[in-house]
């Protein structure tokens, strides 16, 4: 039994302009102690997938199909009270912008203690002590003092540590981290990454790391799922994906990362932009931007053997293709 198993998830937004299929048949799974990176550009549906798991899709959005199983239990259409019991306790989430995730008018201790008391039957003093210990655990110096501070007295990196501490408070089985380092400076990014890596290893927590930046998770994730226009286009072990990406989009992503090994070579780029969510091409959604497009790409593509491209087997080897994409 996997910790989290998403199967053919459909999350749609019913807007006045039409139905936006933000998540359109996504499946992935995570085990205990495993790190899964979900990579994609903005609008690919990676964050909406995470929010769907949390049951945090607001109107006009709705999970319309598929299943989300957590520890074997179906949670896609759980009653809101039961979902609330799960949220923050068994599944925790960390958001992108640490400047915005803490309530500016509540003290740190208030925001931490309430998280414990929402899920555990515990005295306020005990909860406070536990919160302080967790604050120390995420590397915040003199946690006793800092507990009584206000969010604006922390830097961005420190606030993200607080958010991580809040996520850890109830010892969750799964953490969904939605671009938690994107808004931070590069050196702070590395610290947070290192911290998270250590924490999930210690606790055996499953981690879904949502990011648009493949290089951030390259050395850290066990597996990677690449999302494009509401679908997963490739899912593989991290090493395999980085060494030999099979979907043209994954190739493009990896080709566009500046790398030590290819110093001096021109960076590859993917021409154009993602299709608008209301007007996606039929068949392969990446086809309009794909340099390998031929007849047959207008057919509906299925995820077969971890890749959503019917020509995946025919494409030239990745290394050879690299030099060719520079045109």
């Amino acid at each position: 039994m996997r910790l989290l198993e998403i199967d053919d998830l459909q999350t749609h937004f019913f807007t006045s302009g039409g139905v936006v299929k933000a998540v359109d048949g996504v499946s992935y799974g995570v085990d205990r102690g495993e790190v899964l990176a979900v990579v994609g550009e903005s609008g690919s549906g990676k964050s909406v997938t995470g929010l769907s798991v949390m049951g945090l899709i607001d109107a006009p959005g709705r999970v319309v199909g598929g299943s989300i199983r957590f520890q074997g239990r179906e949670i896609a259409n759980l009653r809101s009270a039961e979902m609330r019991r799960l949220r923050g306790a068994r599944i925790a989430m960390i958001f992108q912008d640490p400047m915005m995730t803490l309530n500016p008018v509540l003290r740190i201790d208030t925001q931490m203690v309430e998280t414990i008391l929402a899920h555990q039957d515990m005295g306020r003093a005990e909860a406070w002590a536990k919160a302080r210990d967790t604050l120390g655990r995420v590397g915040i110096p003199s946690p006793d003092e800092r507990m009584r501070a206000w969010p604006h007295q922390f830097s961005g990196g420190m606030r993200q540590r607080v958010a991580i501490a809040i996520a850890l408070l109830n010892k969750p089985d799964l953490i969904i981290a939605d671009e938690p380092t994107t808004a931070l400076d590069v050196t702070i990014q590395a610290q947070i990454l290192h911290l998270m890596q250590g924490l999930v290893e210690q606790d055996g927590t499953g981690l879904v790391w949502i990011t648009h930046d493949l290089s951030v998770v390259a050395g850290f994730a066990d597996r990677v799922a690449v999302m494009y226009a509401g679908e997963i286009v490739e899912a593989a072990r991290t090493d395999d994906l980085i060494d030999a990406p099979r979907h043209p989009y994954s190739r493009g992503l990896i080709g566009s990362v500046p790398s030590r090994n290819r110093r001096g070579a021109r960076l590859a780029q993917i021409p154009g932009g993602a299709p608008p969510a209301l007007d996606r091409p039929e068949g392969c959604r990446f086809a309009p931007r794909c340099s390998f497009r031929t007849h047959g790409c207008e057919k509906l593509q299925v995820l077969r053997d971890g890749v959503r491209c019917w020509r995946a087997g025919d494409l030239p080897p990745f290394a050879a293709a690299l030099t060719g994409t520079a045109s």
Binding site: M54, L56, R84, R85, L86, R87, G88, A89, A92, M93, F95, Q96, D97, M100, T101, L102, N103, P104, L106, E114, T115, A118, H119, A163, I166
Partner: peptide, 20 residues
């Protein structure tokens, strides 16, 4: 975002409205 984060923490709706 902090309201969404408060929901993600599993707080009750009344606590979110009356406190946050």
């Amino acid at each position: 975002d902090f309201i969404r984060f408060a929901r993600a923490k599993g707080l009750s709706e009344s606590r979110i409205v009356l406190v946050h």
